[in-house]
Design a protein around this nucleic acid. Sequence first.
DNA 1: CCACGGGAAGAAAACCTTTTCATCCCGGTA
DNA 2: TACCGGGATGAAAAGGTTTTCTTCCCGTGG
Lengths: 336, 336
Amino acid sequence: MAPTLRDVALRADVSLATVSRVLNGSTRVDPTLASRVRTAADELGYRANLLARGLRRQRTDIVGLVVPQIGNPFFSGLMQAVSRHLQQSARTVLLADAEDDLDLERQVVTRLADHGVDGILCAPVSEQESGVAAAEVAARLPLVFLDRAAADVEADTASVDQRRGIALVVDHLAEVCGGPPATRLISAAPVDSAARARCEAYADAAAEGRVADGAPPLLGEFTVEWGREAVAGLIADDALPQALVCGNDLIALGALAALAEHGVRVPDDIVVTGFDDVGFATLAVPSLTTVRQPLDALAATASELLEQRIAGVEGPPRCELLRPELVVRASTAVAP
Amino acid sequence: MAPTLRDVALRADVSLATVSRVLNGSTRVDPTLASRVRTAADELGYRANLLARGLRRQRTDIVGLVVPQIGNPFFSGLMQAVSRHLQQSARTVLLADAEDDLDLERQVVTRLADHGVDGILCAPVSEQESGVAAAEVAARLPLVFLDRAAADVEADTASVDQRRGIALVVDHLAEVCGGPPATRLISAAPVDSAARARCEAYADAAAEGRVADGAPPLLGEFTVEWGREAVAGLIADDALPQALVCGNDLIALGALAALAEHGVRVPDDIVVTGFDDVGFATLAVPSLTTVRQPLDALAATASELLEQRIAGVEGPPRCELLRPELVVRASTAVAP
DNA sequence: CCACGGGAAGAAAACCTTTTCATCCCGGTA
DNA sequence: TACCGGGATGAAAAGGTTTTCTTCCCGTGG
């Protein structure tokens, strides 16, 4: 059986309280006793039982992180960044994948709460429908939205300025094409807040005449397959515009693949942009012009917001917006 | 404050024991009382405190999963598969990323154990040096190696037959090239068991004359960058062989990118193979011939092994080897 | 009619810590 | 010398469950 505090106390011939104090360094204790305790603990290979500690302290130093799709490299990158940030503050991260499923998301989030996490970082699956589960949880413990938000929930948010990202893309395209280009948006249905913001920003740009697009956007999912399919459709209809604005990099990569299969040259015949700047964006042929989301900064601000709430800071929800950055690569490199 | 079992008991006017029994369905209780308890629990919005439960039961229904690199899509795929499998058996998964760092790995693994997980699935960073931490943990609770193993540790392992995977590649190349081709291996230093197995299998094939390779393998890391770099070196030395056998898909993708940059045509001038079959293998230009590792089966067998150990099954370490599968794509599609 | 067995509910212990509270001893001051 | 304060230590409670052990009641068989 694993040795407990009691075993250490017996061996060091002191009380449980003293052992606890020595090991947590909470109060001054006699150096003699302290060293007795420490050697006893070492000899026994004592390890604190974190369940008991959590139960007593009402605090576990665990935070939960819920992402909608672990398979999307943007989110695995985000998970990595968040993990790294939180490890540093001596926290354990409880990662969870909602698999783009509202029921599963709800399950997973409540399970995290039941496990006594100190707080939750969440990129909700749906802006409208993740709200119920989120609000439920937010009532129990600190919740911070990450990258995306859910409507009607009083919670802090750390995200990237999606509108600005789209603006960067649109301006870049206008410059490259020498005037408002004929474009088409291929993105995901505006179920989550990021997708919606991107769609709206694009629609605004179209309304202002900064791009020429009379056709409705092609809305599916944030996947390679959808990018492929959408482009295949455009080609079948002989409806390829000058430029394709893709809602994220996965869609853009699918689009590039489909274009290549049909012998459409990028950037000569058509230019393509993505969003996120996942690792594979550089590897695509041609390499992908895209909007980089600052993962580290995102992780850092979200962690910071959560830490403050955990520390007990009250106040109205805060909403941090980070600036994205345009990364120009070959997929929009038209000869002058 | 969150309602506790006690609150429910008070409201339903029964004892704590009865509430527990009703909610866990462990024993028959009077239907009247049972329904009183249930409504009371509902009205209060009672949620069991999993820390307290874990403490008492000495079992948490959590398992830990440690991967060496969350950024490698092979591992994020594996994480997804494992999560899915374990969710089904009403388990929570505690995911952790070792960031290819032995110290961090050790830290993370012991932290998981301290948190009272019932067992750990681990893909160790290093075959030789992950052993100490692993053995330490294996003494405390069930540990199963996943995809890779660590030397000198008595633990079950679920992995894919790497040697067979390489054999599939070699045979395929011989067929495509009409005889033992001149090849070169680009892989990672044999720090982990999978890398070593691949290297050895390749070396054996070379020794048997099934490939013609007098030069030493190019060993770096399992990253895109290393693939790029290695190929750039070969091109600089004007030492490109007929075929490149890459240790994993990331390396192969980097290799393809470098070849494309230098105007070397694949598969016309040189053929390239990968290993893992990550999602992006289909998207590469040309699409990548590779060895598919059966993620779902891997997750399933590893989970199964772990469940049995958790259930208390004793016996010598078991080692399950799964069969990989060759996926032929454009990167080796030479005209006859 | 009594005794015994069985089933259901309650009391209390146990899981392992942390932390409050009480105790004790010491030195210092009046 | 007596009292008081302070600092270190130990005892015990608390945190929320599960589970064993007791108790109780009812029905049945002798």
